[in-house]
């Protein structure tokens, strides 16, 4: 039996609300002429939003048992969908088209959040792998499986969005741009790990091996990035960061939090499923001697 350690949902919610507040609520209010920033500078706001968002998500992820009914995960998914819809509506219909790229630039409002959160999920998987190797606790194995799977999904979507964006701007579906290539390599590397998990029947070996493979693959990703960048340095074309006005970053951030919430909820649900599987595979707790005798 999985021992459910109930943990309060409140700190996670507070952190995420704080993040959402400084992430986009302040800017949204500002758009309608309200100032709710409490005098905190925009740079600090962004920092608070990012840190509180990540810490809040991690709080939910490491306590993926907030009640057996997984209310928290469902709440997060619903919250995420709301944020994502709001952000997308804002990004698609309210924000003006960009000067050079026109309407196509609106893909950014979904593309960049996917990239951030995909990387976050994979990073969380890497952390799970390290913790599992030290603590050998099944919870971390389940979280590893969940976050890698969600991370691969997001990275795969990232590749597709990248290709869709590349067609009108660069004229080709695929460019050997370091980011695109690295993401593709990342998808394949972690897909391999998911395949490994399917092929290994012994749960302990599966857990240890996928942890080892995750660590190696994660270390590989930056090396791939730099080598492809080097390889490409002659025809390198990277979008230079421009001063983004609030009209552009508002939908971006809303969507970022939307995808973050959805991702966190998904990982929580998925790790619950993974744990169920391990529980099925491992022997039930030792039967008492008497029962053993009866079974004979």
């Amino acid at each position: 039996m999985i021992v459910m350690r109930e943990r309060s949902i409140v700190p996670g919610i507070v952190l995420l609300l704080l993040a959402a507040w400084f992430g986009f609520a302040v800017a949204l209010a500002n758009h309608y002429g309200l100032d709710v920033s409490f005098g905190i500078s925009t740079g600090l706001q962004a920092a608070i939003a990012a840190i509180a968002g990540i810490v809040g998500a991690v709080y939910f992820l490491v306590s993926d048992n907030l009640g057996p009914s997984l209310k928290a995960a469902r709440l997060l998914v619903v919250l995420g969908i709301a944020c994502f819809l709001l952000g997308s509506w804002y990004g698609l219909f309210v924000a003006p088209p960009e000067k050079f790229m026109g309407q196509v630039q609106r893909i950014m409002y979904v593309h960049v959040p996917t990239a951030w959160n995909g990387l976050l999920a994979i990073t969380f998987g890497f952390v799970c792998a390290c913790v599992f190797l030290f603590k050998s606790d099944w919870k971390w194995d389940a979280r590893l499986e969940a976050s890698i799977e969600v991370g691969v999904l997001l990275s795969f979507l990232l590749c597709c969005q990248g290709a869709i964006w590349a067609k009108p701007t660069w004229g080709v579906w695929w460019d050997w741009d370091p980011r695109l290539t690295t993401t593709a390599v990342l998808v394949f590397a972690f897909l391999g790990i998911l395949a490994l998990r399917r092929f290994v029947e012994d749960p302990l070996r599966r857990a240890v091996w996928s942890s080892v493979a995750t660590i190696i693959a994660y270390v590989d990703v930056p090396i791939v990035y730099f080598s492809v960048k080097w390889w490409n340095s002659l025809h390198q074309q990277q979008s230079s960061p421009q001063t983004v006005s609030s009209q552009f970053y508002l939908p971006l951030r809303m969507n970022a939090f939307g995808v973050l919430f959805i991702m966190t909820g998904f990982i929580m649900l998925r790790s619950r499923i993974a744990r169920e599987r391990v529980e099925q595979e491992l022997a039930p707790p030792l039967p008492r001697a008497v029962e053993m005798q009866e079974a004979v």
């Binding site: 012994d202 595979e281 491992l282 022997a283 039930p284 030792l286 039967p287 001697a289």
Partner: peptide, 14 residues
């Protein structure tokens, strides 16, 4: 000492 293989306990509290 106890040891399991999958769902089966090969050794139980020896």
């Amino acid at each position: 000492v106890s040891r399991r293989y999958g769902r089966r306990w090969a050794l139980a509290e020896v």
